[in-house]
């Protein structure tokens, strides 16, 4: 990969409302016992009660543009990624005009932020891997388009009110995360990316146990592929920047990889929780802000998204 392209800025937004497991259980939003989920490392979920995914996306984009100093006119590519079907459209309409089904979130956000020069693309079927896929898409597009310099990517998801907050032993938060992928980035150069999609598991309810069984061996292989593409060994990796799906799942995966726990950024798993596609990049932002990531250090990001997609991204800070 051309290591000139990197993720130069990241911002995120989590709703103010935080519900603990007991509250979620009382509201019938969990399938498993509170104690079991707590043992797996879950604590609470961020819940957007009066905000839509568009509201959340706007907050993350606004912060990113402001902090990066990049003006909307400088954005050449805008990639919106949402893991949930409801994120595709600005709002759901059960009995409105047929044209309502084309009220795309990506176009509205482009207009709202005045990203007038930006080509607009949306990713909607990568589950929790969608923001990582957006990085890959942005990187490849910038590489292919000589005149493009900056891509703005964003993921934003809000679970519908009727939905449970637990999905196969994961407690899910609402949230959004935006990032600038740019040429000649001074930080977070993209070294390699790998993705394994196993369509056999397209129906997670029907294939639940098989999917759980497949998760770890396939994760190991996806990580191995990203390392192979980068020419690096696992021992060259300074940090694993995780998704926030249960500390227990990471304890197992780290043992499987034989990767030292002290090089694993676990700080956010309990406090931030699992925010669908945003986890790895929220963690990247916080780990950087905490001063943990030093210049030149290599980071490995890994996530899994329903679909079923196992994705791994290697960055150099």
């Amino acid at each position: 990969m051309n290591n000139e392209i990197g993720i130069s800025f990241v911002s995120y937004y989590l709703p103010n409302k935080k519900k603990d497991l007991i509250t979620l259980d009382r509201e019938n939003k969990l399938d498993s016992d509170v104690e079991k989920l707590s043992a797996l490392g879950f604590n609470h979920a961020f819940v957007a009660e009066n905000e839509s995914h568009i509201d959340l996306a706007k907050k993350a984009i606004k912060k990113t543009l402001k902090e990066s100093g990049i003006s909307p006119e400088e954005i050449d590519l805008f990639v919106f990624s949402g893991a949930l079907p409801g994120s595709v459209l600005v709002e759901q309409s059960n009995e409105g005009q047929s044209l309502d089904i084309f009220k795309y979130s990506a176009s509205k956000l482009q207009y709202d932020f005045g990203l007038n020069r930006a080509n607009v693309v949306a990713i909607s079927q990568q589950g929790c891997g969608s923001l990582m896929s957006a990085v890959w898409l942005a990187r490849n597009t910038l590489l292919a388009e000589k005149k493009m310099e900056n891509a703005l990517i964003v993921s934003s998801d809000v679970l519908p009110k009727w939905s449970k907050r637990e999905m196969i032993y994961n407690v899910i938060s609402d949230g959004s995360c935006a990032a600038i992928v740019k040429k000649r980035s001074l930080v977070n150069k993209i070294i390699s990316y790998s993705q394994i999609t196993k369509g056999y598991y397209w129906d997670p309810l029907a294939k639940k146990n098989e999917l759980i069984a497949a998760y770890f061996p396939t994760a190991k292989i996806a990580i191995g592929k990203a390392l192979e593409k980068s020419g690096l060994k696992l021992s060259d990796i300074d940090w694993i920047i995780p998704h926030n799906v249960s500390i227990r799942s990471w304890e197992i995966l780290l043992k499987l990889l034989k990767f030292p726990e002290e090089k694993f950024y676990s700080g956010n798993i309990l406090t931030k929780g699992h925010t669908i596609a945003a986890d790895n990049f929220i963690n990247l932002k916080d780990a950087t802000d905490d001063g943990l990531i030093k210049k030149g250090q290599k980071m490995l990001l890994f996530t899994f998204g329903f679909g079923a997609n196992w994705s791994s991204l290697i960055l150099e800070h």
């Binding site: 498993s32 079991k36 043992a39 797996l40 032993y169 196993k198 056999y200 146990n209 759980i212 069984a213 497949a214 770890f216 061996p217 396939t218 190991k220 292989i221 227990r248 304890e251 197992i252 043992k255 499987l256």
Partner: peptide, 30 residues
Amino acid sequence: RKSIEKPSLVDIPTFQLISKSANELNNKVL
């Protein structure tokens, strides 16, 4: 076509952690 991976070889502590997790989840199949 199912792309089933070959089983990963794990040591005892890892296997015990997996076993503990399956039991905590009370997933009867696992």
